[in-house]
Write a protein that binds this DNA or RNA. Structure first.
Length: 263
DNA sequence: ATGACCTTCTAGGAAGGA
């Protein structure tokens, strides 16, 4: 079972890149973020023609998440529980059947939070609290659970080219990393860090200032695993190739393989 | 180098991103 996450930065603009990558990488499941369209605008036909079912949770103009699956999607769930309904589409969950029971996958687009002196930062922190509360409940199910997405969190200094200049940024602030660690401490495994401690494993490079050419990147796209998923993890890699294509997203896919067979 | 991008919505820039 191959599960990937990719912030596509407009699925309509990049549908050709997306189909090209699906055909070459052959993921069983792909979690997309920043689809930047409403459900009815989603390029469903091109994706179904490539052999994928989809669950889409979009909105006008911004944000939006989706999950593509080669296998039947049994159940879906959108939004996080919380005090108020979230107007921003940032969370969708899907369940598929495997030979050993269900597999649950979420596509997550965690708020950026910048600038930190605006309401955007407390919104990010509150959203992280709601995610943690929801995941705490999901873990009681004792299922293989893969929480894949753009977390907008740089977990550690080795995940950014120049950490000193990021200490006050919403992606790397102490408070942000503390909340990310609280989530991890529920018992989740950061898939990439389960396989390597190498620095510079970036998943995002800004469009500006030749960041890609100079390899000035960030690691902010993560797959966090329940113990039942982590036990079956066989390999993880960041596929940098789509970042080199024409008209790329500023993010590139992170891919994890599991010893789990679809039914 | 006080430089440098990209997308949506909509018709010119504003807003959002990271």
């Amino acid at each position: 079972m191959r599960i990937a996450t990719w912030n596509i930065n407009s699925v309509r603009l990049r549908i050709d890149n997306l189909v090209r990558w699906l055909k070459s990488a052959e993921p069983d499941l792909l979690c997309l973020q920043e689809i930047k369209c409403q459900n009815e605008q989603f390029p469903r036909q091109a994706i179904e023609d490539a052999g994928y079912n989809c669950v889409v949770h979009g909105q006008k103009s911004w944000n939006g998440v989706a999950i593509l699956s080669r296998h039947p999607i049994e159940d879906t769930h959108t939004n996080l529980p919380g005090s108020s309904v979230d107007e921003q589409s940032r969370y969708v969950e899907a369940v598929i059947s495997t030979k050993d029971g269900v597999l649950r996958v979420a596509s997550i687009y965690l708020p950026n939070g910048n600038p930190v002196d605006t309401a955007k930062y407390p919104y990010k922190l509150e959203w992280m609290d709601r995610l943690t509360a929801h995941v705490r409940e999901r873990l009681l199910l004792e299922e293989p659970l893969v929480l894949a997405g753009d977390y907008n969190v740089i977990p550690a200094a080795e995940d950014v080219h120049n950490p000193a200049s990021w200490t006050e940024d919403a992606l790397f602030r102490r408070e942000t990393r503390d909340k990310f660690n609280t989530l991890l401490n529920l018992g989740l495994t950061d898939a990439l860090r389960a396989t390597t401690d190498a620095p510079g494993q970036y998943s995002f490079w800004d469009y500006q200032a030749g960041a890609w050419q100079r390899n000035l990147g960030l690691r902010i796209d993560h797959l966090l695993l329940s113990s039942q998923a982590a036990d079956r993890l066989t390999s993880v890699h960041i596929d940098k190739e789509p970042r080199s294509w024409d008209k790329p997203s500023d993010h590139t896919p992170v891919v994890a393989d599991f010893a789990i067979e679809a039914r």
